[in-house]
Every structure is written in C-alpha cells, then in structure tokens.
Amino acid sequence: MTSTSEGPAGDPPSTDVVREALLAVAAGDADAFPALYDATSARVYGLVLRVLRDPAQAEEVTQEVYLEVFRRAASFDPSRGSAPGWILMLAHRRAVDRVRSSQSQSDRDVAYESRSHTEEPDPTSEEALGGLEAQQVRSALAQLSERQGEAVRLAYLDGLTHTQVASHLGIPLGTAKTRIRDGLLTLRRLMGTTQRREEES
C-alpha cells in the first residue's frame, strides 16, 4: 500500500499500514506514531464525535485515546483482531465512558426522546455513511430489520447501555439484548467481518 494520509473523502487507510505502525510503536519505535495517527485519526475522531456529539469533548477524548494507544500498544494482539479494530475499540470505550460520566446524560436522554418521535431511522447515521467502503456498511444496515439496526445504532453510536436501549425503545430488556445480538450477528455475516486473524505471508 502507498500513502494513507486521508482527506475528508479520501480512501480509508490500509489496515496493513495501521498494523505495521502499531507494531512498530509496540516495539518501542515512537517515531512510527505520527504515521499511525495520520492513518487512523479521521476514523477515531469521527467515531468519538458521533458518540459525544460535541467537538470539544471529542478532541479531548481523541487525545486520551491516542495516549492510551501509545501506552498499551504492546498489548495489541494481532491474532485477536485488526489494528484499526483495536484502536477503534479503545476509542469507543473511552467515548462511552465519557458519555456515561457526563452530567449531560439527562440532556441526551431528552434528545433521544424527541428524536424517537420521528418514525424514521436515525438520520445522522444515514447521512454520515458516505464513502466507498461505507456503501457496504450502508447496504448491510439496510438489510437489518429496522428494529435490530436501531438497537445496534443506539448502543454503538449513541453509547447507550442495553438497559438504556430497552428503556429508550420501551421494550423489555431481554428483547433489547436479543435485538442487539441478532443485529450484530447479522451485520457480521453481511459485512463479511469474520475475525481478521493475521496471515503469515
């Protein structure tokens, strides 16, 4: 793969480049960090911004994420998943931690309430799905039952716990759990994201 610095509509960074940079950082090569940042920051910041919906907080959390990436790079295990997946996992966790510790939680709940009165799918996630790779995700999401997709989006993109998903949708917790599980399993099948173990090449 060649250059991976991304523009607003640029190609998604290569998983290989991210992995190489992350493994280099893990091996103690801090000079590889700028390349790692450049290859992943738009995805990390975009996800964190989507969850937090606040640019200032998203910047803070993104900074924390990258410090955590740097500190914990050695614990990245390529046999368990992709390098971008690992970084996005850390990013998502920190973003939802921020959401849940935030005083604005009750405000967000009100916002969900008003949004839920429109009987349409979450518009933000729809309009955000733009690029080429995104078409696959959009197509997969479209094939999910609306209920499953909604439950998955509320959990992942809005940072709700499954208990909050149930309460937001006015459904029993068990139903929410089932929708989240079935939705994710269906997405996995549709998007072909089986576990990406590293191949010895």
Partner: peptide, 12 residues
C-alpha cells in the same frame, strides 16, 4: 462494531 464507524470519518 468497528466497521459501524465506517463512513463517519471526520478529520480532526
């Protein structure tokens, strides 16, 4: 789950 963030890319 990480793939769900595809399309949300926003340069910081």
């Amino acid at each position: 789950a990480a793939d769900l963030s595809t399309g949300l890319e926003t340069p910081p």
